[in-house]
Amino acid sequence: MLASASATRRLMLENAGLEVHAEAAAVDEEEVKHSCKAAGMKVEEVAEALAELKAQKIARRYPGTYVIGADQMLECGGAWFDKPVGRDGARDQLRRLSGKTHRLVSAAVVFHNGARVWHTTDHATLTMRPLGEDFLERYLDAVGEKAHGSVGGYQLEGLGAQLFTNVTGDFFTILGLPLLPLLGFLRGRGVVLA
C-alpha cells in the first residue's frame, strides 16, 4: 500500500513489479513543515517525519499490510521549496534556483501492523544552469501543468533535463522515492520475490 497520491511514486513501484494500491494520506504538510522549521529540524528529518505521518495514518486502516509513506524536500541556500502553485509560482521557483546548486532529499518509511518497521533517507545534488527569461517562458509553455506537479517545478525525466549542468545522486531519489533500498527491505520481508 502506498500512502501517497503521487502518480510518479506509484509508477516507480509498479514498474519495479509491485502491485500497488495507493491512497492519499490527509496530512497538513504546511503545518508540519512550519513546526519542524521552528524546531530547527534539518530537511532530512522533515522529509522522514512527513513520510512517517503519511504511512502511519494509512496503516491504521490496513492492519497486516505493508504501508509505504514517502516525502521529498528541496533545499537551496537554506530555503525550503514546495510544489509551486500555478505558472507564476513555477516561474518564481525556477528563477530562484537558476544558476544554483540545490539538494533534493527523499525519505521512505514503512509501517506494518501499526509499527514503523523500516526507513531510509537519501539525497541528490543538482546544479541548475542560469536560465534566460525567453528560455524560461518557452520551457513553461512546453511543460504546462507538469511544472506544478513536483517540488522545484521540473521533472528531470523529461524536458527538465534541459535545466541542469550537473546531477549527482540516485535517479529514483530525485523522482521522490529511494526505491532500491525500499525494494531490498521488501525482498527481505518476502513482499517482493528475491
Score class of each variant (00 low, 15 high):
Asn166Ser: 08
Gly160Leu: 00
Leu177His: 07
Tyr154Leu: 00
Gln72Asp: 11
Gly153Ala: 06
His148Ile: 11
Lys33Met: 06
Leu97Cys: 05
Met73Asn: 03
Glu19His: 10
Ala5Arg: 14
Glu157Ala: 01
Pro181Asp: 15
Gly158Cys: 00
Gly78Asp: 04
Asp170Leu: 03
Val43His: 09
Asp88Gly: 10
Arg129Glu: 09
Arg116Ala: 08
Leu163Lys: 06
Arg61Gln: 12
Arg116Asp: 06
Lys146Ser: 15
Asp88Gln: 13
Phe185Arg: 00
Arg87Asn: 08
Phe164Ala: 11
Gly176Ile: 02
Val105Arg: 03
Ala7Tyr: 09
Leu193Glu: 12
Gly114Thr: 15
Gly40Arg: 15
Ser4Pro: 05
Leu104Glu: 15
Ala47Arg: 06
Ala79Ile: 06
Arg9Ile: 00
Ile58Pro: 08
Gly169Phe: 02
Lys100Met: 04
Arg96Thr: 09
Phe172Trp: 13
Gly149Tyr: 15
Met41Leu: 07
Asp88Val: 09
Ala39Ile: 00
Gly152Phe: 02
Trp118Thr: 05
Tyr139Thr: 13
Thr120Asn: 11
Gly153His: 12
Ala49Thr: 13
Gln93Thr: 15
Val46His: 04
Asp134Arg: 10
Leu94Gln: 08
Gly77Thr: 14
Phe171Ile: 02
Val32Arg: 08
Asn166Leu: 07
Gly153Gln: 10
Leu193Cys: 05
Ser98Val: 00
Gln155Val: 03
Ser98Cys: 03
Ile58Arg: 11
Gly40Ile: 06
Val105Met: 00
Leu163Arg: 14
Val191Phe: 00
Leu180Pro: 07
Ala142His: 15
Asp134Tyr: 05
Leu180Ile: 12
Lys83His: 13
Leu183Phe: 04
Ala24Pro: 11
Gly69Ser: 08
Gly176Gln: 13
Ala24Leu: 12
Cys36Glu: 07
Thr120Phe: 05
